[in-house]
Design a protein around this nucleic acid. Structure first.
Lengths: 190, 190
DNA sequence: CAACACACTTAACAAATGGTAAAAACGAAA
DNA sequence: TTTCGTTTTTACCATTTGTTAAGTGTGTTG
């Protein structure tokens, strides 16, 4: 599992062999079952997760009590509640396992320690943030102007693996439609 | 105008007095009329804009020929087509003046030169990117699960100034609804 | 001023989506 | 297996939004 993290980081920047164990030793391996809570809404998020296997999702509850899925994170993606992690303010969203998942966790204090030992790690995380920003903007733009069916088609095209692994209701709450609507759309597509 | 840029940057990090002219000399001042093109879709975007006055918007055209407004940038916001600017790939969106606007422009090569002279500028831009990522995620999440009227109310609450200054059709294309729908929604709210 | 282009509004109808409810399918636990 | 709870499907109706079309400004240009 720790190898997977190193392999991924190597895609962005060469990691000296001798640094590998420094990096991995800062992370802790954990497993979760579908529906399990990785992080609870309302607390300050001091963890950064790296998904090794499975899918996790960022979730909040709106004023009507409806679950909203902000986004999914799958294999080889970092995930946290960025605002809470950065500002140390209470998070307005939690993190749930959308299916069985294996993750590596690093706490904020350990991450800062890692930055001290290996300053280039900060640059990697900054670069990942920029890539993530580009990705978020792209997702918004491809969804813009599409109706529910169009959004679902785009989602499936861009994330065929996620579409197969997580419950329908989670995808519906990600697309901003009701499970009934998504079920209807799936039938129409078949 | 250049003072405005320095004032804004000072909110993020203290700028030594002697650096101010180094920074501002890298930027060029330009004015645009409503509807003017700041950057044309399809080209490689090598400019980073800082809005001093007015509102600009990122625009693309979908397969049906409909204009889509990705987002607006107003006073004291940096704006570029980030993917194109970073990867030097052709941009799939252009930048238009949503109302009369005054901006400071820095080219990519001049920005890289500025990074060399003042390395802390890179940290500032990285921090701005992270803030922008948090903002994009927040916008998406507050819109999620809202109907068209809810999205419009949220937009007006969060951007009362923009709502008053730019054409209705641009806001409609930002919300992903037709101008007719937005006109109807405005009437209902009155 | 007149003519024109463009943005905005309004209306009538069609299509898509939401709300409610109930049934069916599925999985977990006793 | 049976039971229970949850997810998914289906159906019906209400509401929202899109589509089309026409009318009303408003500003610009000749």
């Amino acid at each position: 599992m720790h190898n997977q993290l190193i392999s991924y980081l190597c895609l962005l920047r060469n990691i000296p062999k001798e640094d590998e164990s420094i990096i991995t030793s800062h992370f802790e391996y954990k497993t979760f079952k579908e529906g399990d809570l990785l992080f609870k809404e309302g607390k300050i998020c001091r963890e950064l997760f790296f998904v090794c296997k499975g899918v996790i999702r960022i979730v909040s509850i709106n004023d009507k009590g409806i679950e909203l899925t902000h986004f999914f994170c799958k294999e080889n993606q970092f995930c946290t509640i960025l605002q809470s992690f950065t500002d140390e303010t209470p998070a307005t969203a939690g993190i749930h396992a959308a299916c069985d998942a294996e993750v590596l966790v690093i706490t904020k204090s350990r991450l800062l320690d890692l930055y001290k030992q290996l300053p280039y790690m900060k640059a990697i995380i900054d670069e990942l943030n920029q890539l993530r920003l580009i990705e978020k903007v792209n997702i918004r733009n491809t969804f813009l102007g599409e109706d529910a069916e169009g959004k679902y088609r785009l989602f499936v095209m861009q994330n065929p693996d996620i579409a197969l692994r997580v419950p329908l209701k989670d995808i519906a709450s990600y697309l901003g439609i009701t499970p009934q609507s998504l079920s209807r759309i799936r039938k129409n597509i078949r």
